[in-house]
Design a protein around this nucleic acid. Structure first.
Lengths: 336, 336
DNA sequence: ATGAAAGCGCTAACAG
DNA sequence: CTGTTAGCGCTTTCAT
């Protein structure tokens, strides 16, 4: 391995000068800079980044803590984060914690010990945020909340808006009997989406009917079972909105089983815009979850925190990213 | 930041002894080891991994080069790799190259400069493998091939077996007129899957019919169009096998359009077992692509190469991982 | 514009 | 078992 000392020797200059020549920015004569760079090139010099980072007490890396990159949504986050970092000269270490807070703690410790420049904690089911704040590592949260008093940077999908937009879309299609199959009641996103749903109803002066709101477990089968109850009830809804795409697909199954055509007899709406929504038949109308953007923004915010040493100004600490209604084939205007 | 020198001072010993006590393994008296560890604990000592790694000329990290982690299959690879590494004490840096060989080169250079202990190059469309071999970085390839003379470690999905198993499965269902909609002709996986298909035909003495083999572009729509041709031909197949799940879903659309029921009138088979296969209606029978396992094996092989300094013995340099037939609802025995 | 020297925090000979 | 010493490769004062 050729080091700057080897170059210095070959160039007849000191290592300090070589370092400056390579760093490019310091005060150094044009001629020696060029000469040294050429020599370095010829000698096949490659900087030892470990040495450099060690010296500068910064690894130029950030850690991404996620539940499982192989999940489509986490994957999008990772992609967005990586893209943002790359543009700013950082690279990304990923650590899947699989909903385990011990793993999360290990990850954070490792990141701190590694002199990582920052951490992004992405949509874990974990709520507690024990130690990050205690280390001085800059961090940003994705789809998580902190109970800490000090302001922390958070980037979230706008679940309230999503619930509202979906319901509003259905109302504009003249539906009035709109059921909502939510996720579990103790999930933040469930709560917010439900609030969006009721808000849309309010805005249009449509009375809220508790029998139209059910709670599933995010899985297909719960959507199916709950929708069956809905369709077999005395006054079945003409549209059913689900808090995620999997449950929405279960709803379509239930409709088919009840002899209801989608969208002619019932409209069905999902949430998340996963790939399965595009491949469902009929293709599922849904609300997009802008995970790529969320990841990208989180990455950018973190980079800014790292370079400036404090949280971004002018923006609030918490940013909401809104998705869109993705119109496909499972929704139609109410007939009659 | 408290360093080993601070601990040394507090313990009245030398830094070397502290280092040994913390490393745990060296010859050191039990009593001082415990005492030093306790002191370190009390003082809130955290090792500077950058310093350690620099000193030992190894980062304990490996780089994963992939096209795009947000793709389901790449995500599975990443997950498998990460899991394998974690067990062996390494961590994973991921770099998405988006099918761009310049990016790939940058990634490799960066990994080398960072003193990464190894690299995994996952299923990129790139064939060339310019520089890795020239750096002395241990590496393993996933679903890629090398033209280099020296043996290189490769882990691949067994596409030949997959093509064979799928076709064989259909034959066992009494189908004889089995069409195959392949991916583009210049993809290795296409070629191998096709070979598996023809081999299965041969084994059962079923004549190969060139009009039953078509080449799509992996996308849904090509499956749809090509299947339409098939179904409208003079002697339509009773089963259609596609080289991926997206095209298979297109085939189902085409069948529906031709008034053919799946699986009663035609059987349809996919490949990859993506999530969309489980959510298709009817649920798609397909061949699983064991990406998690592939990633895991690749990670393990790499770790072994790093620790032993050479390629694993007893195994061939190239490992094939076989998927399974995932029976679902789009295939049925040929009637009559 | 350049060089000398120090040092980041840790580990690893080598001595004792 | 423990201490001394040296050094990994680089950057950065501080002189000149």
């Amino acid at each position: 391995m050729v080091s700057i000392y080897d170059i210095a020797k070959a160039a007849g200059m000191s290592a300090a000068t070589v370092s400056r020549a390579l760093a490019d920015n310091d005060k150094i004569s044009r001629s020696s800079r060029d000469r040294i760079q050429r020599i370095a090139e010829e000698m096949g010099y490659r900087p030892n980044l470990l040495a450099r980072n060690f010296r500068q007490k910064s690894s130029s890396m950030i850690g991404l803590i996620t539940d499982d990159v192989s999940d489509e949504l986490s994957g999008m986050i990772a992609k967005g984060v990586e893209q943002a970092l790359r543009e700013s000269g950082f690279s990304m270490l990923v650590w899947n914690v699989h909903h385990d807070s011990e793993n999360e703690q290990s990850a954070i410790d490792y990141f701190a010990d590694m002199q990582m420049d920052g951490v992004i904690l992405a949509d874990s089911t974990l709520d507690a945020l024990a130690e990050v704040p205690t280390t001085k590592l800059p961090f940003v949260l994705i789809n998580r909340y902190s109970s800490a008093e000090e302001p922390v940077s958070i980037v979230c999908t706008d679940d309230f808006a999503g619930g509202l937009d979906a319901t509003d879309y259905l109302i504009k299609l003249n539906h009035r009997k709109i059921a909502y199959i939510n996720g579990p009641e103790d999930w933040y996103s469930s709560i917010r989406r439900l609030n969006g749903y009721t808000e849309a109803l309010n805005q249009h002066h449509i009375p809220f009917r508790s029998e139209y709101v059910k709670h599933g477990d995010w899985f297909e089968d719960s959507g199916y079972r709950l929708a069956l109850e809905l369709f077999r009830s005395e006054d079945p809804p003409t549209a059913v909105f689900a808090a995620n795409d999997m449950m929405a697909i279960g709803i379509i199954d239930a409709a088919r089983e009840c002899g209801l055509r989608v969208p002619e007899d019932v409209s069905v709406m999902g949430y998340d815009d996963r790939t399965i929504a595009r491949y469902a038949r009929p293709r599922l109308t849904t609300i997009s979850l802008p995970m790529l953007e969320v990841g990208f923004i989180a990455g950018k915010v973190l980079c800014e925190m790292i370079t400036t040493g404090h949280m971004p100004e002018g923006k609030t600490a918490k940013q909401l990213v809104r998705g869109n209604v993705i119109e496909r084939e499972t929704t139609a205007p109410l007939k009659g």
